[in-house]
Design a protein around this nucleic acid. Structure first.
Lengths: 127, 127
DNA sequence: CTGCATCCTATAGGATACTG
DNA sequence: CAGTATCCTATAGGATGCAG
């Protein structure tokens, strides 16, 4: 997994070290798909194809990779059901609940941001 | 700025559209430095070099680029003071406060995550 | 001090085709 | 259905050096 060492040299006073946790978090969670993927799974277990449709334009290769990584980080559990044909689902682990707040904030912000942009478009068109 | 169109085709029922805002947010905020940078500025106005030291290993080119983008998105204001030599500071705009919650959550999560990893290391070493 | 210009590489992620 | 295998490209971001 790798967390970068404690290399940050900050002015002793200040707040400094405060950003290290942010960088730590980003190290695991950043990328185009991880958060949206977890967001998608917040609605309950999903199958591979469901996720693919859900996310809109992710390719199987990438989806597969992202799921594997999320499994390694213990955000996601892969379950195999011995139906015919076999059914496989992905679902969030209890641990991943710790990420849900981030996603909620991101979601809220995304909504506001989109509105803001639309407003700005209007007012600049009016000029 | 560009927000991707409403191309997500989700099963009509489900929750689906819920992830679009997440993707919107990520479109603007993702990358290695934007969030840490805003996090750094949460402690008050900073100068170019301060930020560079603060963030640990960002190159001037990248820092410069990130700052420009944050300025465009109205998260950051660049202020020039006519001292000799000129002093330039970067500070967060009121709008960027809307992102602070995200950063706080990220920070909290980063701290927990690091602790978790350390614990796991110990227990797996014990095996 | 505050950057910009140039060059360079690693990696994320897309396209396409194929398998059990 | 649930992926894997290959190939390919765009882009983020690092290294270095220079400039006002």
């Amino acid at each position: 997994m790798e967390i970068e060492g404690d290399k940050i040299k900050h002015t002793p006073e200040a707040c400094a070290g405060n950003i290290r946790p942010v960088k730590d978090a980003l190290y695991v969670l950043s990328g185009k798909w991880k958060l949206p993927l977890i967001g998608a799974l917040m609605d309950g277990p999903q199958r591979f194809n469901e996720l693919q449709r859900f996310l809109g334009d992710i390719t199987p290769k990438v989806l597969s990779k992202e799921l594997r990584e999320l499994e390694l980080n213990e955000f996601v559990e892969r379950k195999v059901f011995s139906t015919v044909p076999v059914t496989i689902t992905y679902e969030l682990t209890p641990y991943s609940q710790s990420v849900e707040k981030i996603i909620d904030e991101l979601r809220k912000w995304g909504i506001e941001h989109r509105e803001r942009i639309i407003k700005n478009r209007k007012s600049s068109t009016a000029a």
